[in-house]
């Protein structure tokens, strides 16, 4: 029953890695055995977002080239006993791994874990092709901006042309106040344009920056974005979870006590 899910976006900087990290942690907190694979060879980042950058010994390329066993390269996150990271190589480039090799690696990981999450590099070149090769499900991350949505549309087209049709959309960095003023596209607008299933909406929330600064997860803070990621994980697990009303104003007391 294990699943291999690729997290992708086309455009860079929309929150792919942050989303991947928080989804991985969220699933691990639900006692699922999760391995996160950073497939961005040459520009690894999932390690630093997860706060595991000082524990890397071997990497993805070492495993594929047979320099070490798979188990030796997996980093166990001490905070979440069910979470593992397979970091990317920093000093190599994308061409040293082929889609076939990635597929083989995913099958190996599938045997050991409930969820294999692949953090995809930006772009549509070989790095994307590698990340997508072994996946059966995709999460596309976008922001409510024209450039990000255009690239997401391209990516969705490419995924579908590779027979990857199980696609969930995450809209990141939504600003409900701007949507209300008519100065930002709404969730409904984006879903209608891209015509894929909505998996979740993450508001533009400073807690995400703060948590990432510390190599921690927003799931461990009392925040709207943490709650939104938690809901995404529950939806991935098959629960029907209503979408958060992000326009909800904070109550009088919480305003006084929170700031």
């Amino acid at each position: 029953m294990s699943e291999v899910i690729v997290i992708t976006s086309g455009k860079g900087g929309v929150g792919k890695t942050t989303s991947a990290a928080n989804i991985g942690i969220g699933l691990a907190k639900q006692n699922k055995r999760v391995v996160m694979v950073d497939t961005d060879i040459g520009l690894r980042n999932l390690d630093v977002v997860l706060g595991l950058e000082n524990r890397i010994v071997y990497n993805l390329v070492d495993v594929i080239e047979g320099n070490c066993r798979l188990k030796q390269a997996l980093i166990k996150d001490k905070r979440y006993p069910d979470l593992f990271l397979l970091p990317s190589a920093q000093t190599r480039d994308k061409t040293c791994v082929s889609p076939e090799q990635m597929k083989k690696l995913c099958d190996q990981l599938r045997a050991e874990f409930d969820y294999v999450l692949l953090d995809c590099p930006a772009g549509i070149e070989q790095g994307f092709q590698n990340a997508v090769a072994g996946a059966e499900k995709a999460i596309v991350v976008t922001t409510p901006e024209v450039s990000a949505i255009r690239d997401a549309d391209r990516i969705i087209g490419l995924l579908e042309s590779q027979e990857l049709r199980d696609i969930g959309l995450i809209i990141n960095r939504l600003r409900p106040d701007m949507v209300k003023r008519g100065e930002m596209m709404s969730v409904e607008d984006v879903v209608e344009i891209l015509a894929v299933t909505l998996l979740g909406v993450i508001p533009d929330d400073e807690h995400v920056v703060i948590a990432t600064n510390q190599g921690e997860s927003v799931l461990d803070q009392d925040s709207v974005s943490g709650h939104a990621y938690e809901n995404i994980c529950r939806r991935l697990l098959g629960d029907e979870v209503p979408f958060l009303d992000l326009t909800e104003k904070k109550g009088f007391f919480s305003k006084i006590f929170h700031r």
Partner: peptide, 14 residues
């Protein structure tokens, strides 16, 4: 609104 302009531009472009 800029939201409507964005929606229109994107839907044409895509």
């Amino acid at each position: 609104t800029s939201r409507m302009i964005a929606r229109e531009r994107l839907s044409n472009l895509l």
